[in-house]
Write a protein that binds this DNA or RNA. Structure first.
Lengths: 119, 119
DNA sequence: ATAACATATGAACAATCAATCATATGTTTG
DNA sequence: CAAACATATGATTGATTGTTCATATGTTAT
């Protein structure tokens, strides 16, 4: 009796060895979750616009708000998200807070994304 | 009378010239929207996992489903999204459909993202 | 042709999230 | 100190979205 071989859908078509091999090389679930969370931050046009604006210059919240035609509150909320992901960093000067890109990964990532779009 | 100078919040703090300069160099709204849409696709852990799995090998829907412990339906829905963004491409072989990465931007983007995570 | 199978698709529901409004915090100036 | 101002935050709401379930499409083999 080889009823073991006869299994239900979801296992018949599976390429066992390949799946095995891939499984070994997959990063931890936590890492992959964090990675998705990072990309999620880029996945909003308001935040992308803010980041793109900061490509050119350090800007205060108020500047960004006018630049993009948004509420000060909306911008502040989004900057909070960007800051939490270490994509932008604040510099306080009196009342105003200037934001700039945290590092060059931001530029590289966005540039790479643009390349894909422009194909 | 120079009441023109005295304006409400949202304009007083604005650094005019900088804002001007940045505005000139900003890509079209449409481009920025598309860019955000692209990143949105990466912004889900299921899709990131699928992409990562395809780093190693071409896989059929069924393989991916078992690999990630997901429903065939869920995987199929997500592959549809990935295909629409030209991140994966299908190859049909009889009943089964094998998916693979569409190009190298995917690898580069994910690698870049991982770099940011691992700092 | 019919059964078994791999994938795709449509509708529905729960969860997530960005903008808004109101308000709080903290800084400068008179 | 009080008023003006720049930014931050909390609650709410409308919209978006990933999964599930049921079913449809299309392929292979008997």
């Amino acid at each position: 009796m080889d009823s073991v071989e006869i299994e239900r859908c979801g296992f018949l078509c599976v390429h066992e060895q390949t799946v095995e091999r891939v499984l070994e090389q997959m990063p931890d679930d936590e890492k992959l979750y964090d990675l998705a969370e990072l990309f999620k931050v880029f996945g909003d046009s308001t935040r992308v616009k803010i980041l793109y604006a900061l490509f050119e210059a350090e800007l205060c919240v108020c500047d960004i708000a006018q630049l993009l035609g948004l509420t000060q509150s909306a911008v502040s909320h989004q900057l909070r998200v960007l800051k939490a992901s270490r994509l932008v960093k604040p510099r306080k000067d009196g009342k105003t807070v200037f934001y700039s890109l945290a590092d060059d990964h931001v530029r590289t990532l966005i540039a790479q994304g643009m390349e894909h779009i422009n194909e």
